[in-house]
Every structure is written in structure tokens, then in C-alpha cells.
């Protein structure tokens, strides 16, 4: 990730009322910043997966993870370093678009792997799911045409297959 203070924390949490408030409250009272947050249920209806990009110095990351781990509803938690994770983010953007510029924009979007999902006379709505970095590139390019509205989901991530996340991260925490 470009920002050195951005770290991905992936947590499996119990799907109970107030869990998000507990997580957000912990961040607020310990002075940790959330850069982005994505939550959704998993295949197990009792569990949700939360992907948080935290904005803290590397030296504080252990604190963030071990404090979060103390929440009773947090069942499992680990840091995912970008090289060891598959990451995706979804972007929706409505861009101003005169008829002359239309094909130019469509070209850029399709070249980057996005799609046009809504159209009217003067606007296009674009969808793209990709790595956050590629979405940054798209966003920059679209900016020159005039973005009217944009919503990004924040990144979601899973460990790469074959990555020995479990044992490695957990033993790191213990020895730190």
C-alpha cells in the first residue's frame, strides 16, 4: 500500500448486535484511526468478516490487534500484509460526460476492467472491482472529466492460499 501507516486487519467476529459499535468504540477510545472498514456475513450465519484498514504507525499495530482481540465477540484476528493477501475493492462513480467525451471515457473504463452500469444524456455511472491501487488510477483519470458522485467500499481481503498466516501471525503476537 502506498501509505506506510496503512495496515490491513482481518477479523472474524460474532454476528451479534453491537459488535460494530464495540470495534468502532475501541478504535475511538484508544486513538487508532480507521481508514476504511468493510463488514459482511460469512457462509456461517453466526460469523461476519470485517476488513479494516487501520492508519497507525507500524509499532502500534500489535496494540491494535491485541486490543481488538480482547473483544469477546472477536473470534479471530490477524494482520494481512499486502503481499500475503488478495485484496479487492468496489467503486461506483457517476461521471459527467458530454456526448463527445463518451467513447473516450468508455475506453478508459473498459481498458482498466470496469463497466458502465448506468447511462443518461449527460452522465455515466461506472462500476469497477479491482485492487485499491487500480481503483486509485481509475479515479484519477475520471477526475479530469468531473466526478459527480463516488462511493468506494473500502478494501476487503483474504489471505493468499498457502500463506501460513495462522501460525506465523499468532506466534509473532506472542513473542512481541
Amino acid at each position: 500500500m502506498e501509505n506506510k501507516n496503512h495496515h490491513i486487519v482481518s477479523a472474524l467476529v460474532e454476528n451479534k448486535a453491537g459488535v460494530l459499535a464495540r470495534i468502532a468504540g475501541l478504535f475511538a477510545r484508544r486513538g487508532f484511526n480507521i481508514y476504511s472498514l468493510a463488514v459482511a456475513p460469512t457462509d456461517d450465519a453466526k460469523l461476519s468478516r470485517v476488513t479494516i484498514v487501520v492508519d497507525v504507525e507500524a509499532s502500534l499495530l500489535n496494540q491494535v490487534v491485541s486490543q481488538l482481540n480482547k473483544l469477546i465477540n472477536v473470534v479471530e484476528i490477524r494482520e494481512l500484509s499486502p503481499s500475503d493477501a488478495v485484496e479487492r475493492e468496489l467503486l461506483l462513480a457517476t461521471v459527467q460526460c458530454s456526448p463527445e467525451k463518451r467513447s473516450e471515457i468508455i475506453q478508459i473504463v473498459t481498458a482498466l476492467g470496469g463497466e458502465i452500469v448506468d447511462v443518461d444524456i449527460s452522465c455515466l455511472t461506472i462500476e469497477m472491482s479491482s485492487t485499491p491501487e487500480r481503483l486509485d488510477t481509475l479515479e484519477e483519470l475520471l477526475n479530469s472529466y468531473g466526478i459527480l458522485r463516488i462511493q468506494r467500499t473500502g478494501r476487503v481481503a483474504l489471505p493468499r492460499l498457502g500463506y501460513l498466516a495462522e501460525s506465523k501471525i499468532e506466534s509473532e503476537l506472542k513473542l512481541a
Binding site: 500489535n62 496494540q63 491485541s66 486490543q67 482481540n69 480482547k70 503476537l173 506472542k174 513473542l175 512481541a176
Partner: peptide, 17 residues
């Protein structure tokens, strides 16, 4: 007993968790 206390203020040379 609390992993969150380890290194919170002062980084230890050896941890007995």
C-alpha cells in the same frame, strides 16, 4: 496474562505470556 499489555508502554526483551 494480557497480550495487550506486552509492549504497550515498554517493549520487553523477553515476554512471559
Amino acid at each position: 496474562i494480557d497480550p495487550a499489555e506486552i509492549g504497550k508502554v515498554r517493549r520487553p526483551d523477553i515476554t512471559l505470556l
